[in-house]
Design a protein around this nucleic acid. Sequence first.
RNA 1: GGAGGGGUGGCUGAGUGGUCGAAAGCACCGGUCUUGAAAACCGGCGUCGGUUCACGCCGACCGCGGGUUCGAAUCCCGCCCCCUCCGCCA
Length: 424
Amino acid sequence: MLSRELLREQSDRVRELLAGRGIGPEALDSWLELDQKRRSSLVELEDLKRRRNEASKEIGKVKQQGGDAAAQIEEVAQLKGRIAELESQVAGVETGLEEAELGLPNLPHESVPVGEDESANRIERVVGEPRQFDFEPKAHWDLGPELGILDFERGAKIAGARFTAYFGAGARLERALINFMLELHTTEHGYTETLPPFIVNSTALVGTGQLPKFAEDLFRLEGHDYYLVPTAEVPVTNLHGNETLEESQLPLRYAAFTPCFRAEAGSYGKDVRGLIRQHQFNKVELVHVATPETSWDELELLTANAEKVLQLLELPYQVVTLSTGDMSFASAKTYDLEVWLPGQEAYREISSCSNCTDYQARRANIRYRPAEGGKARFAHTLNGSGLAVGRTLVAVLENYQQADGTVTIPEALRPFMGGLEKIE
RNA sequence: GGAGGGGUGGCUGAGUGGUCGAAAGCACCGGUCUUGAAAACCGGCGUCGGUUCACGCCGACCGCGGGUUCGAAUCCCGCCCCCUCCGCCA
């Protein structure tokens, strides 16, 4: 959520920045109109209430002295009608304002390339080199079933399309990746591990920005205000919702493993094969809560921590700054980590690291009290995958495949695989 | 799922229809005193919104939402959350 002060006082700048995100000027203009209306009605309403309160006090006094307060009672009765009218009017305008505000995305940081879509993304760096194969590398959707470790048919049988069953070394590899990532982040990178609920309520989803606008992307439990988490960003960021932290506690850095559930509405026909786009996948998520002064440094740190996973696994990747048109709703700036997949001969997203500045903090009401005292301020929240586990497994299978169809286990993972060196 | 208890300011905790935004204590901030500190004493100390050049003024808020009343923290209705016991389970 953007602050009302900002929308009012810097409307031209906001209008321009929103345009970069594909939001037309009417969104802000209708908000400004409602805001104006709200304030003018409020002035009248509060004036009437003041008069009503005064009259009530007079009634109390008069009655205490045994007098007749009929005149004041009559006046209050008359005020009542107009007050009720204005109250419902203000409430309606307020609802409209809130709806409008919840529908506005965060403003992009000045360093974000302006553009309509991913074609405007900016490659920041390319790390590692794609391996040269002396045979035709296979895609994981062939490798996995051939090794007997991934079973797309049986996944579909028990759930449907975009669900997969893992077996044997495949299941173990997924678990090893989870443990490897969590160990790295909690020990070397100093994160606090957290294991949140995998189900959240709508308040949490509004807090991080998935609701109300993106309900169709979520799985909702029938008959409940419960949703399966689409990412650990939701439960973990909301952990401190409606809290005022002390500045000395910041930055908070959390690492969380959770499964993620996404309806993938509108992605029909996209990545239909393999593990790339599933309704359920595992992820180790990194979440930071920081002060405004440090959040941009925190974004670099978070991204570097996520990159470390790829480096230790010796997987080639590139880092991309998403353009204004490609960024997620709550983000002010996002780096995507894209890993090289030989089976597709392409870099594919494996992590998305964002600074949401105070946007989510406003929605979720996450504040902190400055060390020097004074009024509580909104914190900045950041999140990033560290990493998407299913896609990491894909990258391992495809990058470490051998000519004979076996897959070598990356050195860094072997301790988590009971010393296993090869899947065959 | 059943029965009971409870949600008041940072904390503890008064307050059952009228000047209550709310006693008191603690915590915190400022001052007096002191070589310094502590103690003692004095004063200050909620949030949000609106308005004002400003001082300030006004409105709202005692879990949330409705209702009764001239007037509600106090009465009524619905909901949420927490605690205890029973049942059921992991």
